[in-house]
C-alpha cells in the first residue's frame, strides 16, 4: 500500500499545523480523565477536596508554601505520599484485594484458555470446510454478537439458578469454553486468509482435519490467537456485570466487585485512596496495552471489515 497521495492534503503549511494541533488536543482530552485520576492517586487527601483544581499535587505546608516541582523535597514528598496512598488502598480493612486478585486471575485464565481453544475450533468449521448451511449459520453468529449482556442477564440468572451455579465461579468461565461470537468472527477472518493449498496438500498426504487444524492452521494463526487471547483476558479481567449478577459471597468477589465495594464502603473512601485502588486493579491491563497496543487496535478494527 502506498503512503498517502498529495490529493488528500489541505494546502500544506499553516492548515496542516492547525490540524495537527487540533488532533493533539483531542488526544489530550481523551487522556485527561485517566491522567487526572492518576494525579489524584498521588495527592494528600486535603488537596483532593480543594477548590483550586491543580493537576499535579502541590504538597503545601500550613502556611501555604509549596516546594518547587523540580526540587528534591517535592520528589521525596511525592514518593512517600504515593506509597502511603497505594498501601492504604491495597491493605484496607474492608476489601481483601489479595484474594480478589487471585479470584480474578483464576477466572480470567480459565476464560482465556477456553475461549481461544473452542472459538478456534468453531472458526475452523466456519472457514476451512465447505458445507451446506455454513454461511447461514454464520449469520446467526454475527447476530449474537449484537445481543448485549444486560438483555440476557435476568434470563441467564434463572438458568444458572436451576443449574445450581449461583454463588460459584462457573458462570464466569464455563460459557467461555463454548466460544464467543466475536472471537469466532475474528479467528474466522484470519483463517480465511490462509491459502487453501496448504491444508489441501496436507489432506492429500492423509492428514485429517484435526491434523491440519493443529499442525497447519494454528501455528500460522499465532498472531490472531494472541490478539483473541488478549482481548478475552481484558474482557474478563474488567468484567463487572457477570460477577455482580452471579456472585453472591464476598469471598468470591472479583477485583471489579472489590473496587466497587471499596468505593461504597461505610462512610465513603477518600478520593486519593479510591483512585489508587482503581490503578491497582487496572495495572495489568494498562501494562498489556503499553506493549501490545498496535496489535490490539488492529484486532478491534477487523470488526467493521467485510471480507
Amino acid at each position: 500500500m502506498s503512503n498517502g497521495s498529495g490529493t488528500r492534503r489541505w494546502g500544506g503549511g499553516a492548515g496542516r499545523w492547525m490540524l495537527t494541533a487540533l488532533m493533539l488536543v483531542v488526544g489530550l482530552m481523551f487522556l485527561a480523565p485517566l491522567f487526572w485520576m492518576f494525579a489524584t492517586s498521588l495527592k494528600p487527601a486535603a488537596e483532593t477536596l480543594s477548590r483550586d483544581v491543580g493537576v499535579l499535587p502541590r504538597f503545601a505546608d500550613e502556611s501555604g508554601v509549596a516546594p518547587g516541582k523540580l526540587s528534591g523535597a517535592y520528589a521525596e514528598k511525592l514518593g512517600s505520599q504515593a506509597a502511603a496512598n497505594y498501601s492504604a488502598a491495597f491493605d484496607n480493612p474492608v476489601t481483601d484485594f489479595r484474594l480478589y486478585i487471585r479470584n480474578t486471575a483464576l477466572v480470567s485464565v480459565l476464560s482465556v484458555a477456553g475461549m481461544v481453544l473452542s472459538s478456534a475450533i468453531a472458526a475452523y468449521g466456519f472457514s476451512r470446510i465447505k458445507w451446506r448451511g455454513r454461511d447461514s449459520l454464520f449469520l446467526v453468529v454475527l447476530a449474537t454478537m449484537m445481543i448485549p449482556f444486560t438483555v440476557i442477564m435476568a434470563p441467564q440468572y434463572l438458568l444458572y439458578k436451576h443449574m445450581g451455579w449461583i454463588g460459584t465461579f462457573a458462570p464466569l468461565w464455563v460459557p467461555a469454553w463454548f466460544g464467543g461470537a466475536f472471537t469466532v468472527f475474528l479467528l474466522r477472518q484470519f483463517f480465511l486468509g490462509i491459502p487453501r493449498e496448504l491444508d489441501e496438500a496436507a489432506q492429500l498426504d492423509g492428514c485429517s482435519h484435526w491434523g491440519s487444524f493443529w499442525r497447519i492452521i494454528l501455528p500460522l494463526a499465532k498472531p490472531a490467537l494472541a490478539v483473541a487471547a488478549l482481548l478475552q483476558f481484558i474482557a474478563s479481567w474488567n468484567d463487572f456485570l457477570a460477577p455482580l449478577v452471579f456472585i453472591n459471597q464476598q469471598k468470591q468477589y472479583t477485583l471489579m466487585m472489590g473496587l466497587a465495594l471499596y468505593e461504597r464502603q461505610h462512610g465513603g473512601t477518600p478520593w486519593n485512596h479510591v483512585m489508587a485502588a482503581s490503578f491497582i486493579t487496572m495495572a495489568p491491563v494498562l501494562v498489556l496495552f503499553l506493549f501490545t497496543q498496535r496489535a490490539l487496535i488492529e484486532g478491534v478494527a477487523t470488526q467493521g471489515l467485510k471480507e
Binding site: 483531542v26 488526544g27 485517566l34 487526572w36 474488567n238 463487572f240 471489579m256 468505593e263 482503581s278 478491534v300
Partner: peptide, 25 residues
C-alpha cells in the same frame, strides 16, 4: 500528521478502562 500514533492510542485507551474505575473517575 505528526503524533497520529499517540492520538490513536489515547483515543483507544479508554475502551480498556473497566467501567467501575471509569465510574469512579
Amino acid at each position: 500528521l505528526p503524533g497520529t500514533g499517540f492520538v490513536r492510542a489515547a483515543v483507544f485507551l479508554p475502551t480498556l478502562v473497566p467501567i467501575v474505575a471509569a465510574a469512579i473517575g
